[in-house]
Design a protein around this nucleic acid. Structure first.
Lengths: 194, 194
DNA sequence: ATATAAAAAATGAACGTTCATTCTTTTTTA
DNA sequence: TAAAAAAGAATGAACGTTCATTTTTTATAT
């Protein structure tokens, strides 16, 4: 196996161990020694890949966030209509939260605690830009209500959190019909026309 | 001053310091010594009021949650119509999140991390029962869509998180008109009749 | 291809610090 | 003056990070 690939594998193992352990125990209750053990490396080896523990968790956040948004926008195209574009993105996000609930849960923890550096937090937000652009277009075309991005996000995307987290951090099952209902609710709460 | 009152004050100081410090630094990055200092007591004194650090944060959670729900249901009465009841509760929750954003932020952190014991988490959920009861009544009367409580919560209450937290944990301003818009969106996404 | 040496990667043990909790003593209350 | 409350110093364990050493890889020469 190429040495480069081996490095990548090791880095990935560290990232995955971090997600797993932080999800279960939280950032500060997850020792570097435990991350190392789960990734099958020595604690010292972590410091060849990351500057320190904070850097490890920042990088993990950026990586998960970037996978998340790549997934969300994979089938979206700027040439689509606003409505179609929103539907495509919304359903991909729903899909991600259902299938990659551990990753979604990790992001939720990062977004609701002081565990991530402000800089990484800001960088994470940038990844949602295509959605904000779509909304800007929708508002200009009069298709989307003239609300702030905060409110649009809160009413159409935030509710998707029920797919993987509720108050008790448990997951929930959902059939295709219910998902469609949820999408209709999301769309009708942000579309302009009554 | 009565000794009892002094005890209560000291306990409250500890609870408030915990909320403040955990909001800023996170649970595990908040040492007992710092909590003690902020509450103007000795570290050892904390152990006269709470069993240990976990107990302190569990009790703080229950206390904040219970203040939150007491506020949410204060003007609600089971004799109200479903629609009126929901409006009253929704607006009180909005009010709480705007005015007591530090408390709301603390609850969000607790609800999205493993920092609270499962037992306390379950107890916290119980406090929302009046809302679940209202929904059950609404569903029976055909006024509320026959969705799971998860989805009803996700589409009507969750979005209120935008009042105090967005992805960057910053707060956001909102005028009365926008709040009414938000309520209409919340209600229309859960009410049964089209 | 093989042997060899230099460089890079990886390791486990060790270090210094921090922290939750306890212990002993002092202060306050009844 | 006895009991309860509070204090600050002490304790021992756990942790992030570094260090000295070993192992693996890469490059070069035969």
């Amino acid at each position: 196996m190429a040495a480069l690939q081996k490095s990548i594998d090791k880095r990935n193992a560290l990232i995955n161990a971090t997600i797993d352990l932080v999800n279960n125990d939280g950032f500060h209750a997850t020792p570097m020694s435990k991350i190392a053990k789960m990734a099958c490396v020595s604690p010292a080896t972590i410091y060849l890949y990351f500057e320190n523990k904070q850097d490890l968790v920042n990088k993990t956040y950026i990586e998960v966030k970037s996978n998340y948004t790549a997934y969300a926008f994979a089938t979206y195209d700027e040439s689509m209509s606003v409505e179609k574009g929103f539907e495509v993105i919304w359903k991909r996000i729903a899909d991600f939260k259902l299938k990659e609930s551990a990753h979604a849960m990790f992001l939720a923890q990062c977004d609701n605690t002081p565990m991530i550096d402000e800089e990484s937090r800001q960088e994470g937000i940038k990844h949602l830009q295509p959605l904000l652009d779509l909304w800007a277009r929708g508002k200009k075309e009069g298709i989307i209500k003239p609300l702030s991005d905060y409110m649009l996000y809160a009413y159409s995307i935030n509710p998707l959190s029920f797919l993987m987290i509720t108050q008790n951090r448990g997951s929930v099952k959902l059939d295709a019909k219910e998902l469609d209902q949820a999408f209709e609710a999301a769309w009708s709460s942000i579309k302009a026309c009554k």
